[in-house]
Design a protein around this nucleic acid. Structure first.
Lengths: 370, 370
DNA sequence: TTGTATGCGTTATCAC
DNA sequence: GTGATAACGCATACAA
């Protein structure tokens, strides 16, 4: 390696720094080979003699060559990017789900990454985001639909763009889906509540256009009936899906006459608002009122009482969605849409009164951290 | 518009659906103009006669033409994508910050979107993510550095890739930054604690390679000294930055002899673990121990007692970072790096004992939702 | 006012 | 084992 060459390299690097980047042609001329050869050593796409290979690799290192992802995407007609559309990353459920997505990507294909979009349950915003994602030619889509874009989403699947629903799904859109058995999970926590002697169980329902919520409402109703309790419309309270609104609704629940002895909250924002209302009105939980929540979060046992909830496998849902999506993207799987239904776990803690029963044994004994 | 034309269009659309997409050439031939003209009407980049313009627009609609973002990126040599690197979207602070980023993007340039990457404070992972982001040719970077990639980041700025630090910054890397005045904020909450009569104030410190945490620790120390209190190493407790670990550390704090009468937690995971420890050990807050947390979250007043915290302007930090970044990207701003320092607010609630003082007036009066 | 043609940086198909 | 070159879809300099 003569110093003249090195000098030339150095100045080339500097020049490239100022404007543009070093390309495959630079590498080729530096190594004294054709661009084809360089491309092939970069992609190991055909056999290259050991010494030319070595020269190419050296040139790449010297020039700090990095393939141009955009040019690649154009040529290969795939971007290695997937679009993720959720309602709100601030919701711990989605945050964890997104971590699951990222984790699965890292395991399955670390070249892929994702563009995140929050719709705030606004179908118009959803539509706008879909447009830019499609224009950017994402290879696939993971979406928790806000509802209201059926025809557009149908159009997308008919254009053969891999898509998987997560958390919720649109009935008439033929796309893969990863959801939870909301009905069964709701029954489980309601049975728990009823088994603990609660009879006047209110429902704090988030107003969302999501079948997941609808199913939880149905589960609530069925459980009551199956347990021989009345389904009382006066016990059903609606609230926009945020903590402040849930707090207001929670206050209404607690001042209703006669006061319910339990509340089932259809998502974590409802639960958080509800518990705040209990404290604000100076009531005791679970003695005066039991709280059962759908959705768990990492700090559910930082509350006093610790919250009894249904823990959705949010991380696993994200992972599974990626698996389904990547299989579609690689055409490893074709044909009709698949629906993966995951189970949700009942985490019995204190807010429904379970610990009151066995208090002789457990009293004061700190739970060990998970 | 003759029906023959429409038929041809229909079959073309179908054909395109099967393989490939409709391109600018299709539109051009359909409208009977050149690709240049189509390009110019799409981008309004030169004057086009009203009627040809109309024909082009019609053709675009009929063929459902959508510009190919990747080809555009290659040609214009900008992708309209920015990379966002944080440690953990599951942390409510970052979740809110990311929402701020997204909001600002929507306001300033709705064509832009972002790729999200979670490093989990792992500088190796950070490095890997940086590589793929750079290969994808993101137009800019917003990063909460995990620490340990100084030289690589320096290299990035010398390659003129717009970058802004958020929440934390690396001292020797000349990039814009949006941070909070950690020292002042910490002093504020410690003064509050001390003003309320607390004297044995423990520190629950997250072990992170972040100057933000270091500054909070420094603020703690300074405040003690300034208020004539001892800086006692026995009151300093370290913990990995997660709730479970913080819970363990919290138990240690609470069983120390003599027991501290207050704890300052350097981030929200510490606070959440600490409060769990208090409940687990059956202590009363704020009577037995006051808790002061750095970082607020939307459900801080769902706890009992409601948490007194320093609320960082996380959303605004995200917004400001985008503003700085886009200004750099457009070269609206050049020259030396800017450091934007935002203030953080002390939110007085109950966990430090403030309400104990004025209990005659406020007792039992529910706080109104924000 | 409009069109032709070149090139952005790759990959892949030929040909040698 | 290697090289020349034609696309990928678009934006734009240059012509007309």
């Amino acid at each position: 390696m003569d110093s003249g060459n090195e000098l030339r390299t150095a100045s080339l690097v500097l020049a490239k720094q100022a404007s543009g980047m070093t390309t495959i042609r630079d590498v080729a001329s530096r190594a004294g080979v054709s661009v084809a050869t360089v491309s092939h050593v970069v992609n190991s796409s055909r056999t290259v003699s050991p010494d030319t290979k070595e020269r190419v690799i050296a040139a790449i290192a010297e020039l700090r060559y990095q393939p141009h992802g955009v040019a690649r995407s154009l040529r290969r007609s795939k971007t290695g990017t997937i679009g993720v559309i959720i309602s709100d990353i601030t919701n711990p459920f989605f945050a964890d789900l997104v971590r699951g997505i990222e984790h699965a990507i890292q395991i399955l294909d670390s070249q892929i990454n994702y563009i995140l979009s929050n719709t705030d349950e606004d179908s118009h915003k959803e539509r706008l985001y879909l447009d830019v994602l499609l224009e950017k030619r994402v290879d696939g889509l993971i979406i928790a639909p806000a509802g209201g874009n059926q025809s557009y989403l149908t159009d997308i699947v008919s254009r053969r763009i891999p898509m998987v629903f997560v958390d919720r799904m649109l009935p008439r859109v033929e796309a893969d889906a990863v959801v939870v058995d909301n009905l069964a999970a709701t029954r489980r926590i309601l049975d728990h509540l009823i088994g603990l002697g609660r009879r006047r169980i209110a429902l704090l329902k988030a107003t969302l256009h999501a079948n997941s919520i609808d199913e939880r409402v149905a589960g609530y109703r069925h459980s009551l009936v199956e347990n021989g309790l009345d389904w009382d419309p006066a016990l059903v309270f609606d609230s926009p899906s945020n903590i402040a609104a849930a707090y207001s609704a929670g206050c209404k629940i607690l001042t209703a006459e006669p006061r319910p002895d339990a509340v089932f909250c259809t998502n974590n924002f409802m639960t958080l608002g509800m518990i705040r209302a209990v404290h604000a009105l100076g009531l005791r939980c679970p003695e005066d009122i039991a709280i059962a929540g759908f959705d768990d979060f990492p700090w559910a046992d930082s509350f006093s009482p610790q919250l009894t909830t249904i823990a959705q496998p949010s991380f696993a849902m994200g992972e599974e969605a990626v698996r389904l999506l990547i299989d579609r993207m690689n055409k490893r799987r074709t044909g009709p849409a698949i629906k993966v239904i995951l189970g949700a776990e009942l985490i019995v803690r204190e807010s429904c009164g379970a610990k009151l029963q066995s208090s002789v044994l457990d009293e004061m004994e700190p739970t060990t951290p998970s």
